[in-house]
Design a protein around this nucleic acid. Structure first.
Lengths: 205, 205
DNA sequence: GTCTATATTTGGATAGAC
DNA sequence: GTCTATCCAAATATAGAC
C-alpha cells in the first residue's frame, strides 16, 4: 500500500481556524470573539466551522490547551547542577521567563490567561498548579541547595521563591500590556536581568 | 421655602443600579453582564434602567471610576517622616495594600481591573499611571530618603521600588483569585508582613 | 419612574443543496 | 467540505401608556 490513505484531508482549514481563534480569543476574550468573526477571518462561512469543531467552546478549549504548555523546563539534574553555582541558576530561570514573554505565541497565551483568569474557574485552578506551584517548586529546589551550600542566606526557600517569582510575573504583565498597545518595551527588556542582579545581592552570603 | 425642592427624587434606584452593576461587572466582565441581569437583580424592568443611564456603557464608566480611587494615600510630609525611620515606611505602605486587598469594595474593583485590563486600552493607560507610576513615585521618594540617610544600601530608587511593588501586586492577585472561589486565604494573609521583613533584610545597611 | 410591547442587532447553531 | 438559507435565543435600546 504505497498510497497515503489517512482519513484527514489536509486542506489545513482546521489549523487555520485554530490559529485565527487563538489570536482573536487572546485579544477579545471568549465572549468578545464570535464564530462569525472567526469564520470571516478564516475566509469561510460560519456553518463551515462546524465541520471542524462541534461548537465555539470546543475551539476555545483547544486553544486554551496551549496556555500552560511551556517550551522550557528545568530537569531535576539541571536544577542541581546550576544551583550549586548560585546566581547562574536564577539567571537561567529569569531568562526562560524573558523568552516566554517575548515569544509571540506565548504572549498571546499569557494575554488569554489574564483575560479569562477572573471568569473561568478551571483556568484559576490551572494557574495555581501549572504556573504558580510549578515555578515555586523549581525555584525552591534550587534555593534549598544554595542554602545548604551556604551560597545564600538561610530562610524559607518557598518564601524566597515567592519573592523572586512575583517580580518576574509583574514584569511579564507590564511588557505584555505595552506590546498590546504597540508601545516600546526597550526600557523594560533589561528588567529581567536587573531583577536577578538585585535579588542576588539581596540573598547572597 | 421650608420644603425640599431638589429635582432628584431620592428613591435610590440609581444608586442600586450602580451597586448591582459593580458586583456583576466585577464578576462577569463587561460583555458577560447584561442589562437584563442588572435590571433583574435591581428588581425592575430593563427599560426602566434607561431612565437613569443612557446606556450600558455609561453604567460601566460610572463603575469604572471607582477602580483607581483609593481611600489611602501618603502625603509628601508623611513620606518624609516615615522614611527617616526606615522600615516603618515600608510597613505602612504594605499595610495599606493589605487593607485594599481585603476590602470587599476594592476587591471588586481589582477584579474588574484584571478582567478588563487586556480588553480596554483606556484602562491600561490608567493602570500604568494611577497604579504603577503613582506607587513607584511614593516608594521612590521614601527609598531615596532612606538612601540619603544611609538606612538602606544605595541603588536606583525606582528599580528598588519596582521590586517591592511587584510582590505586593502578586500577593493581591493571588488573594483575589482565592476569594473568588471562596478559598481560605489564611496562609497568604501574612505574606504582606513577610514580604516587608524579607525586603528590609535585603536592602538595609 | 416604571411598565408593556416592540424594534433591531448580533450571535450560536442546524438543514440540506452542491 | 463549503455554501445558502434559516432558526432561535439573547441582548441593546426605544415608544408610549399608566
Amino acid at each position: 500500500m504505497p498510497t497515503d490513505t489517512r482519513p484527514t484531508k489536509r486542506s489545513g482549514t482546521k489549523e487555520k481556524i485554530l490559529k485565527v481563534s487563538t489570536t482573536l480569543f487572546s485579544q477579545l476574550g471568549y465572549k468578545g470573539t464570535s464564530v462569525r468573526k472567526i469564520a470571516s477571518e478564516v475566509g469561510i462561512r460560519e456553518s463551515a466551522i462546524y465541520n471542524h469543531y462541534k461548537n465555539k467552546e470546543e475551539i476555545f478549549l483547544e486553544v486554551a490547551k496551549g496556555i500552560f504548555s511551556s517550551p522550557f523546563s528545568l530537569s531535576s539534574d539541571e536544577i542541581k547542577e546550576l544551583a550549586t553555582k548560585g546566581k547562574p541558576f536564577l539567571q537561567k530561570f529569569a531568562l526562560q521567563h524573558k523568552m516566554l514573554t517575548f515569544d509571540k505565541m506565548n504572549e498571546n497565551m499569557f494575554r488569554l490567561l489574564m483575560i479569562e483568569l477572573m471568569q473561568n474557574r478551571e483556568l484559576r485552578v490551572q494557574f495555581q498548579a501549572e504556573f504558580h506551584e510549578k515555578n515555586i517548586k523549581v525555584l525552591s529546589e534550587g534555593l534549598f541547595i544554595m542554602m545548604q551550600n551556604s551560597l545564600v542566606r538561610s530562610g524559607d526557600p518557598m518564601m524566597v521563591s515567592y519573592e523572586f517569582l512575583s517580580t518576574l510575573f509583574y514584569i511579564r504583565l507590564q511588557i505584555t500590556l505595552m506590546h498590546f498597545d504597540d508601545l516600546s518595551t526597550n526600557s523594560l527588556s533589561t528588567h529581567f536581568e536587573k531583577h536577578v542582579d538585585f535579588f542576588w545581592e539581596s540573598i547572597k552570603v
